[in-house]
Amino acid sequence: MLTDFGYILLFIVTGAIFVGVALFVAKLVRPDRPNEIKLMTYECGEIPFGDARVQFNNRFYIIGLMFLIFEVEILLLFPWAVVFKEIGWFAFAAMFVFVFLIFIGFIYELGKGQLKWDIPKPRIPRYVEGVGVVDDDYREEKVNEPALQAD
């Protein structure tokens, strides 16, 4: 018989085999008539330009870092949570200090606005008597236009 983790391996293998079998059955039935246009990258009917692998916004990296910090923290909390009821007040105090310290950093991060996803300001033109429609933000935004970055 398998061990408990052996069963887990069995499940992973079963999942992969199922996908393999399904794709194989499809391979038997489906047509296969590739041509140059069909194998082109889909870009809404246009001819694709450039490589899709562009530089990405820094925000994703910061989110990744924050995630890592919280995951490690939670990882450390799991064994604590299992034996919590047996230890009682001491466990509570120890964890409270731990979570509190992490939270000071978190609140600092929030206060610095690192986790804010800045969105483009909506440009609302206004009507000025005698002048016509004025777009206040237009010139200003042109000057501070950020470097082209994918979202």
């Binding site: 008539r33 041509n35 246009i37 069909k38 082109m40 009917g45 001819i47």
Partner: peptide, 12 residues
Amino acid sequence: RILRLYEQMSEP
């Protein structure tokens, strides 16, 4: 564009 979109659809 229509030709390209049509070609990019998977058969049938």
